[in-house]
Amino acid sequence: MANLEGCQERVLAGRLQPKRQRHAKCCSGTGGYSAGWVFVIGALLIVTGVLVLTLIESKKARAEVAATLGSSVVRQNALSQEHRAEIEEINKQNLLKMAAVSKDHHYEMENLWIILSIAEQDLDAALKVASKATQ
């Protein structure tokens, strides 16, 4: 109210000034700017505020994506090492099984050679007996 009273006093004191000057100095409330400029400036401030908030949110999102990606890489490396260790263990087990099978095969072959040598001895003995019987 005090502002309006001061404005009225200025208007009364300045009756000799042209109407346009009196209006621009005291009654517009915008310091002489037209309503269109006030709207444009307000809209620009709002747009700037929205852009700043969007920028802040995008930085937060980038940080979250970077953190998620980092943890994903670490987790993937850990799984990869775990799988390598499992593969090495399976390879060791397979080598042990192959060694056991090879040992069994070698033992079987020795037994077959022994049987073959016994069979050859029996054949030789049978041939000697047959040859003595024919003589």
Rank of each mutant, 00 (worst) to 15 (best):
A2L: 11
N3Q: 12
L4K: 03
G6L: 12
Q8F: 11
Q8D: 07
E9F: 05
E9T: 10
R10H: 01
R10C: 06
R10W: 07
V11N: 05
L12V: 00
A13K: 05
A13D: 14
G14P: 00
G14R: 05
L16R: 15
K19V: 10
A24C: 06
A24Q: 08
A24R: 04
A24L: 04
K25P: 00
C26V: 02
C26T: 02
C27W: 02
G29N: 11
G29V: 00
G31F: 04
G31E: 06
G32T: 06
A35L: 13
G36Y: 02
G36D: 09
W37R: 12
F39V: 13
F39Y: 07
I41Q: 14
I41A: 10
G42Q: 12
L44P: 00
L44N: 10
L45C: 09
I46D: 05
V47A: 15
V47I: 10
V50K: 08
L51G: 15
L55M: 11
E57W: 10
E57L: 12
E57Y: 00
K59I: 10
K60R: 14
A61E: 15
A63T: 09
E64W: 01
V65P: 01
A66S: 14
L69P: 01
G70L: 02
G70T: 03
S71H: 01
S72V: 01
R75M: 07
A78E: 14
A78L: 05
L79E: 12
L79N: 10
S80W: 03
S80T: 03
E82F: 04
H83Y: 13
R84N: 14
R84C: 05
R84M: 05
A85D: 02
E86H: 10
E86W: 05
E88P: 01
E89W: 00
N91Y: 02
Q93T: 06
Q93W: 00
L95F: 09
L95K: 12
L96T: 07
L96A: 15
K97Q: 03
A99Q: 13
A100H: 06
A100D: 15
V101N: 14
V101C: 04
V101F: 05
S102Q: 15
K103C: 04
D104F: 00
D104E: 14
H105I: 03
H106Y: 13
Y107E: 15
Y107W: 13
E108A: 06
E108Y: 06
M109P: 03
E110N: 02
W113D: 13
I114G: 07
I114H: 10
I115N: 13
L116W: 03
L116R: 11
S117C: 06
I118G: 04
I118M: 09
Q121G: 08
D122F: 02
D122G: 01
D124W: 10
A125F: 05
A125Y: 08
A126V: 00
A126Y: 03
L127R: 08
K128L: 08
V129E: 05
A130R: 14
A130V: 03
S131D: 08
K132W: 06
A133I: 10
A133F: 10
T134D: 06
T134Y: 06
T134I: 00
T134N: 09
